[in-house]
Nucleic acid binder design. Structure first.
Lengths: 210, 210
DNA sequence: GTCTATAATTTGATAGAC
DNA sequence: GTCTATCAAATTATAGAC
């Protein structure tokens, strides 16, 4: 389905994500969203009542999609120590495909941390599996049953997410600071995965077993 | 010097940082900044001409302060492998003391990546030492002269920054997702440092030498 | 469902007195 | 340097025809 064949509602949602991400909720203009979507401005109010509700819908639908994706990754991963590799791979690839999402989310965290907390709580309640806890369980298992060091799985999750996400939210700064503006992003992202996995595997596993 | 004793100009600057961080440039209201600073709104225009210039001044002065701090840390650190520990320690502590800065910066990256690039370029030109390159040199030395694995120092820097910064920019999400709302932040931050250092030292250094 | 025209409001910015 | 009063512009939102 091409963009032109989408329903008016979906055209608006797509355009709104674009504009909200680059301009923020307050900086975004309803007219600009309408123009980008190729629909009349009044349509935005017809479908979403007002700007706040349009924003809420964009935020919610996108964060849900992200959670669903991550859930699939974590649930489908197979052997314990192979899982970390699959998760990092899928996680980085996902952000490479959707570089807008981390920015949208972090913007909203700064804008209104309480509303973000409420949404996350809702998602946790709604989801049958608690993804982070599942992942923590997985790390715990690995730690006690396998040749992993004893580290706090929660801290490790934060470290993993930080390493996977930082390039996508800080790209412009990183490119200038590290002089990599001419490097092929695709290749750089591939190396990112390797570096993260190297640090994790090497850092978490006992060396005698290698 | 208490807040009340500050010059009108500085009162405005402090209040503006607060409001810009939580509301963003577009969401911030000049009136709100004036109220928080305890000065008349007209004073903002008297000292800073308009909103854009006030924002630019807030952004620039704060990013400069941050760079200056990090520079001090990196330059003053001593032995190569002790340096990583000092850097991570100081970096995390700095963000713990100034949790607003990462958000201010990442917001501006999303809003106007080109202007951020320009500012970073300026700072690079202005600074006598190129901090990241100095750090890269340091890692390179360590890699060739010491018992470090051969990894790309640029990737490693990104990993370190990501691990150090993510907790502060994603705090509300992390707290809910990992069920740590009741944990003492101070203690958690201390554990964060330990986890980062464990992963780095364990991940980067050959194990035979331990 | 879609459009045009317009109302209502917010808010950045200035003029001018002190 | 500081304040009050006010303007001008921008922008969300609605009314009402088709």
């Amino acid at each position: 389905m091409t963009e032109a064949q989408l329903s008016t509602r979906d055209k608006i949602l797509h355009a709104a994500l674009d504009v909200f991400v680059s301009k923020g909720k307050d900086g975004a203009r309803m007219q600009e969203i309408a123009d980008l979507a190729g629909v009349n401005k009044a349509m935005l109010f017809y479908y979403f009542t007002n700007k706040d509700l349009l924003y809420a819908e964009v935020f919610r639908s996108n964060i849900m999609e992200m959670i669903a994706n991550i859930k699939t990754i974590i649930i489908s991963a197979d052997e314990p120590d192979k899982k970390i590799e699959q998760i990092v791979n899928a996680y980085v690839s996902f952000f490479a495909d959707h570089p807008d999402l981390p920015r949208l989310i972090l913007r909203e965290v700064a804008n209104d941390p309480e509303s973000v907390k409420a949404i996350i709580r809702e998602i946790k309640d709604y989801a049958k599996e608690d993804i982070p806890m599942k992942f923590i369980g997985l790390l715990h298992e690995s730690i006690s049953e396998q040749n992993f060091y004893h580290v706090d799985p929660k801290q490790t999750i934060i470290s993993i997410v930080g390493m996977c996400i930082i390039y996508f939210i800080g790209k412009p700064i990183i490119e200038v600071l590290l002089d990599i503006e001419d490097v092929d992003p695709q290749e750089f992202i591939e190396q990112r995965k390797q570096n993260i996995l190297f640090l994790l595997k090497n850092g978490l596993l006992y060396k005698e077993e290698k």
